[in-house]
């Protein structure tokens, strides 16, 4: 395992990540890239970068990439996939992008059973714009736009996107994973691989939610941020496989 980490996968470029120290985006990029390399599909893959801290994903994934407007990545991916049904198409989206401004696009791509893979990075906040609240912000959590803590009477409740999408017919695979420990990172890797395999087998829409840390905007050390995922996020966002293609009468 240690060797694997040291050797950078071919599916990543040589560019050093611009992410803050301890940011989860770097780990998740690596897991996605390793999966693509292991499946041997790098040259057949088109990735869609969204708007958020990962907007520069196209600098890191060593493959064809298209950058989408805020929230619209699933629609852009649909366009690509309908032109190139035998290629691999994935989106990489944050919680502001996917669960706020992009709710229409993600729900309808899922309901259409669009044969794409969506990597959804849930860090409970808008990282890039400076730590405003997101639909996934947990109750009581302080952000720059909920300075007194998220109050359900004013700001509503945290959104369980995996739970919601797994109720839709076209959806082949939904799982929620995290990266707060080495064991969880391994599990996240397996889930991402499974999602891409579902796409390879043309079973429909596959979705992996990754509970992630944003130490900068949470104003925590990277270590404390990982602890916070485990202690505060897990009770609201339980990990697990919500749906798999196997159940979906193939």
């Amino acid at each position: 395992m240690a060797e694997k980490i040291a050797a950078r996968t071919e599916a990543l470029t040589e560019n050093p990540f611009h992410y803050c120290p301890g940011c989860a985006h770097g780990i998740i990029h690596r897991l996605v890239a390793e999966t693509i390399e292991e499946l041997g599909v790098r040259e057949k893959t088109v990735g869609v970068a969204s708007v958020g801290c990962s907007v520069f994903a196209y600098n890191y994934f060593n493959m064809d990439m298209q950058q989408a407007a805020h929230g619209r990545a699933p629609a852009v991916a649909t366009g690509i996939k309908r032109v190139l049904p035998d290629n691999f198409v994935f989106t990489y989206q944050g919680d502001g992008d996917l669960a706020a401004i992009g709710t229409a696009e993600i729900v309808h791509a899922a309901a259409r059973g669009e044969n794409i893979t969506v990597i959804f990075v849930n860090n409970t906040t808008y990282g890039m714009t400076g730590g405003q609240s997101a639909p996934t912000t947990i109750l009581g959590q302080k952000t720059t736009t909920t300075p007194y803590g998220r109050d359900p009477h004013v700001n509503g409740y945290p959104m369980g996107v995996s739970e919601m999408l797994s109720t839709l017919g076209g959806v082949a695979h939904v799982s929620r994973v995290s990266i707060y420990s080495p064991a969880q990172v391994n599990r996240a890797k397996r889930a991402i691989k499974k999602a891409f395999e579902v796409q390879r087998e043309k079973k429909g829409f596959s979705f992996v939610e990754v509970l992630a840390s944003c130490p900068t905007n949470w104003r925590m050390t990277p270590q404390d941020a990982l602890k916070w995922i485990e202690e505060k996020m897990l009770p609201i966002y339980p990990l697990g496989e919500f749906k798999t293609a196997a159940e979906e009468g193939k």
Partner: peptide
């Protein structure tokens, strides 16, 4: 939220509740 105007909503998120006003971050 969007840069470079975020100080406006952040200021209002602090002040509006004290004035019984409405500050709401929409989904888009």
């Amino acid at each position: 939220p969007i840069t470079p105007q975020s100080e406006i909503p952040e200021y209002l998120a602090k002040k509006m509740p004290q004035l019984d006003g409405v500050y709401l971050q929409a989904e888009s």
